[in-house]
Amino acid sequence: MTSGLVFALAGVLLFVLGLGGVVMLSHALRRILAFNLMGSGAFLVLVGLAQRDGGVDPVPQAMVLTGIVVAVAATALALALVRRLHGAHRDD
């Protein structure tokens, strides 16, 4: 079993764990963390599966870099909304 395949299988576990978390958890902060877990899982599958024969493939690596930046942006927006909601509730 190559390291790529191990990454892909670990990615599946993270993805499913995150998906379960997003569906089942109720606290917004935990759901944001769960979403990030899910994203990391998908990134691992993207990179690992393509390189399961031990070769190097720069294309999924670049895609994952793009994906990470998108995830950072989305997480920041989500955190801002949570914080705004929290502040608003304390004001009322």
């Binding site: 998908a42 599958v45 993207l46 599966l49 989305a74």
Partner: peptide, 20 residues
């Protein structure tokens, strides 16, 4: 946002499998 991000995550997983 949370629904949308989760949905995008599922879509991305699909893309990862296709690329694989």
């Amino acid at each position: 946002l949370l629904v949308s991000l989760t949905a995008s995550g599922a879509y991305l997983m699909g893309v990862a499998l296709i690329y694989g």
